[in-house]
């Protein structure tokens, strides 16, 4: 297990790290050790703004997934196991489809002559077809659709661990549905919420197919930039540096998030200060 992890994760990562310190704009061009790639990244405001934009997008996508996924996961968890089984299957189903198929499906739905446009025009809500593709909301909608199952499943698995009797006890102690949610369910579900949030966040900030195809050239996320850099321009050192910036900052962000949530909510300390 440890060997597998080292072989499949650590070694390629170290390779990537090494190539990010190479000079020049091609893998075979230079040798040696330089911080050029990183300096170039952080001194160009275009790159840093894409980085920030990517994080904001990832955060919003995770939040939307949480808002939709928590009630869904909760109600799934409270169903009897037999009813839960096939519903869970429906939740997982989209994950079994190839991402490219899903994205092309969205292209058809959101396209100029697509389903949404023809519906809105037929209903007379807009006079002529609009451009939905290549906008930031369109990218986020597709990302939410892709990653929602992870949130639902994480929430569901943690809620099934919470004894429903606790909710009854809260109700008996004069807590209405809202108070029970706020004081009992959510604190006890924090581990699952964090897992789901982190998964969706990390998957969103590193997505590249969706931003490339749905966002086109107008909506740029770091993932598609890296893809472009490596696959089209074959500029490995620069792509590797970007990938590493994304990796480290993503890690730092989720770690900070977990530490914050952990100290505030999980232990229940400082609750009176809230």
């Amino acid at each position: 297990m440890v060997l597998l992890l080292i072989g499949c994760l650590v070694v390629p990562l170290l390779g990537l790290l090494r190539s990010s310190f190479l000079p020049g704009s091609h893998l075979l061009e230079g040798s040696g050790f330089t911080l050029d790639q990183y300096v170039r990244f952080f001194s160009d405001s275009y790159y840093t703004s894409v980085l920030v934009e990517t994080f904001i997008d990832g955060f919003i996508v995770s939040l939307i997934c949480l808002v939709i996924g928590f009630p869904t996961g909760y109600s799934l968890a409270r169903l009897p196991p037999s009813a839960r089984r096939w519903r869970t299957l429906i939740v997982i189903m989209p994950l079994t489809l190839s991402l490219v198929v899903v994205v092309f499906g969205w292209l058809i739905i959101l396209g100029r002559n697509g389903f949404v446009n023809s519906l809105l025009v037929t209903l007379g809500i807009i006079p002529s077809p609009r451009i939905f593709l290549f906008t930031r909301p369109a990218v986020m909608i597709v990302l939410v659709q892709q990653f929602l199952p992870f949130m639902i499943l994480s929430v569901m698995s943690v809620i099934t661990q919470i004894d429903p009797v606790l909710e009854q006890a809260a109700a008996n102690l004069r807590a209405n549905r809202f108070t029970t949610f706020r004081r009992i369910i959510i604190p006890l579900a924090v581990p699952g919420i964090l897992v789901g949030f982190n998964l969706v966040f990390v998957l969103s900030i590193s997505a590249f197919i969706t931003p490339r195809l749905i966002g086109g050239n107008r909506v740029v996320m770091l993932g598609s930039l890296i893809y472009e850099r490596i696959m089209s321009e074959l500029n490995w050192p620069s792509g590797a540096a970007m990938a590493f910036v994304l990796f480290v900052s993503g890690l730092a962000f989720t770690a900070a998030l977990n530490a914050m949530a952990g100290s505030r909510i999980i232990t229940g300390r400082g609750r009176y200060a809230l």
């Binding site: 009854q168 006890a169 809260a170 109700a171 008996n172 102690l173 004081r183 999980i266 229940g268 609750r271």
Partner: peptide, 28 residues
């Protein structure tokens, strides 16, 4: 609904809130 009824219940499994201290449970 249960939360409008003037009852206090001791459950078979006690149903204490695991993330709250004893004092917080009693204060809930």
């Amino acid at each position: 609904p249960p939360y409008r009824r003037d009852t206090g219940m001791v459950f078979q499994s006690y149903a204490l809130f695991p993330h709250m201290t004893v004092a917080e449970n009693v204060a809930f």
